[in-house]
């Protein structure tokens, strides 16, 4: 494996990390506000379907993105209603949303497109195209540095750049703004906000709107940037991996990015390892290779995380009465 191979591997790691990263940041806003979001998976799936279906019907990928964000935010508001207003169990609400999305996307897909649950393939102009940074071709001739520029930094869709821009923005919002201070406080001790004269519900709603929007982008990326249509259960557990990454990152934005990139590398290596003959072992069954990122997720979470301190008030509905 030479330098070019490594760069190509990292390049596909970045692409694979993006939906995780967006979902992870989405979950960060929700969980920092004290609401467990196990429904990241469902929101992504619903958004992916909405994006692909809208883009296929209208021919406009931006409308697709808008639809994705709308659907995902709508689902997030259902979660908000259940968790904040009705003080329901947040895990159950999230799981319900996951089921809802899994069923509804396939059902609507059958009903609208009659293609066995998938949406029509999008033409290149109906998808998010890649953006070439200036002089990418020219620099590409320079070994290593140029290749990094051309392969790794250039040639991604706008969502990829958005996702990586969202990391410093989130960090700034969380630690340097009034909203961030209140967001962190409401996840730790909502009573402190309440007694200081602020609305716990309003803040949590705001957080869940951001969660919905970001999940929408993540879903749109899957079906209109990385892929070219929607297929049944196309998120395949990414929402849960994102949640695991969030815990691994201890609810911090920069660590979330590194964790998602790590999972990206694992997934990318998985694709490359398929069919490779290992010394002593021989060819490993493809199913095992495919399971590797997930196994490593479990191992990492169980073994290397140290003490993950969740926001203290997470999962508890806020009741004003004392």
């Amino acid at each position: 494996m030479d330098a070019t191979d490594i760069i190509l591997l990292l390049d596909s790691s970045v692409r694979l990390a993006v939906p995780l990263l967006l979902a992870c940041l989405a979950g960060l806003y929700s969980e920092r506000s004290g609401i467990v979001d196990i429904g990241l998976e469902g929101k992504m799936l619903g958004a992916a379907f909405a994006a692909a279906a809208t883009a296929a019907v209208t021919g406009n990928v931006w409308l697709g993105l808008l639809a994705a964000m709308a659907v995902s935010t709508f689902m997030s508001m259902i979660h908000a209603l259940a968790s904040i207003n009705f003080r329901g169990n947040q895990i159950i609400s999230g799981v319900a949303l996951n089921f809802l999305a899994a069923g509804f996307t396939v059902f609507l897909g059958h009903a609208w497109f009659r293609r066995g649950g998938t949406t029509p393939n999008l033409r290149p102009d109906e998808r998010f195209s890649t953006i070439d940074l200036p002089f990418a071709q020219e620099f590409g001739q320079v070994p290593i540095i140029g290749e990094i520029y051309e392969q790794l930094l250039s040639g991604h869709s706008i969502i990829v750049y958005f996702a990586f821009l969202a990391v410093p923005v989130t960090a700034f919002v969380l630690f340097r703004t009034r909203f961030g201070l209140r967001l962190r406080a409401v996840g730790e001790n909502p009573k402190a906000l309440d007694t200081a004269g602020m609305s716990v519900s309003l803040l949590r709603y705001q957080a869940l709107i951001i969660t919905g929007l970001l999940c929408g982008v993540a879903g749109a990326y899957l079906s209109t940037a990385q892929g070219a249509n929607f297929s049944e259960n196309m998120t395949s557990g990414r929402g849960f991996i994102a949640l695991a990454a969030l815990i691994f990152a201890k609810w911090r934005p920069w660590q979330a990015m590194w964790t998602c990139l790590l999972f990206g590398v694992l997934s990318a290596s998985q694709i490359r390892l398929q069919g490779v003959e290992f010394p002593m072992i021989g060819e490993v069954p493809v199913q095992f290779i495919q399971a590797l990122p997930y196994i490593l997720t479990v191992v990492l979470l169980a073994g290397f995380i140290g003490r993950a301190k969740a926001p203290k008030a997470i999962g508890q509905p806020y009741v004003k009465e004392r």
């Binding site: 201070l181 730790e188 301190k309």
Partner: peptide
């Protein structure tokens, strides 16, 4: 808020400006 500093606790809700 236990994992906030004294200063952060004091300004919480009375921050005034958007940037901290």
């Amino acid at each position: 808020v236990e994992n906030f500093t004294v200063l952060e606790n004091i300004i919480l809700g009375a921050e005034g400006e958007f940037l901290l």
